[in-house]
Nucleic acid binder design. Structure first.
Lengths: 132, 132
DNA sequence: CGGAATCCACTGTGATACTG
DNA sequence: CAGTATCACAGTGGATTCCG
């Protein structure tokens, strides 16, 4: 694909059979990378803090364990979203920051935020709260 | 929030303490709703087919089981993304389609697609394939 | 300080068989 | 046709302890 089209243009081409070698949802791969309970929250902290340390994340994401924080950070790093810089001073510390690939998620997050504000009131009740 | 700002404007306000009542990532809630292996693929089929039947989904999403398809559809319906219309003819069938809430995901998917095309080549290898 | 290692509970996913 | 019911399994999430 040479030029960026809209999603609906893209889908129209898919329907017409012009795009056949994909065969699958172009949205899925990224969203699979962002799955898990903590990934997006870590990225959010990265947005706020520019660079952030392990201990800061641990403090901000209340409830997260060392294990999960480590795993999530490792996966985000492996997927190329964040950088990990280790400072071997005393006391040692580590700083995490966005890669360009990660920072380019911003427009997506912006659209999600817009969607969220538009639809925050129409969230259907998946289970009615019982009035006790 | 009265007017839509950019995500970075929003984050700047968060940093300044103007937005304090949120306290959490505005991106996370939606992405949690879209988690799972099949959700986005189902939505993708909905994009292509406008309305789509259970059996069509079953055929297109090769590998999905009745259980997972049913569960995913139920959750997408509960989250307000899709409509379910049942036709009690002979033979009976069911048609799924987007709600407005679901269709409004399009701009998000578009941004994800743009991101995907920009970064499709810089995907780092998370594990080197061993040449056996 | 920033993890790693281990163990464990839970739940997401899947295969199979059956039903209105 | 469009599911439901059950069971099995694997991966995720979590608590605790220990290490460089």
């Amino acid at each position: 694909m040479d030029k960026i089209m809209t999603y609906e243009e893209y889908l129209r081409d898919v329907k017409k059979g012009i795009v056949t070698d994909l065969g699958n949802c172009p949205v899925t791969p990224l969203l699979l990378m962002l799955q898990g309970k903590w990934k997006t929250q870590i990225l959010y902290e990265l947005c706020i803090h520019d660079t952030v340390r392990f201990s800061t994340l641990k403090k901000e994401l209340s409830g997260i364990t060392n294990t999960m924080l480590t795993n999530s950070l490792r996966e985000l790093e492996a997927d190329g979203f964040i950088n990990r810089v280790q400072f071997n001073e005393i006391p040692p510390h580590v700083e995490y920051s966005f890669t360009e690939r990660g920072r380019d998620l911003m427009p997506i997050f912006y659209e999600i935020m817009v969607w969220g504000f538009k639809h925050e009131s129409d969230q259907p009740k998946k289970d009615q709260p019982k009035n006790d």
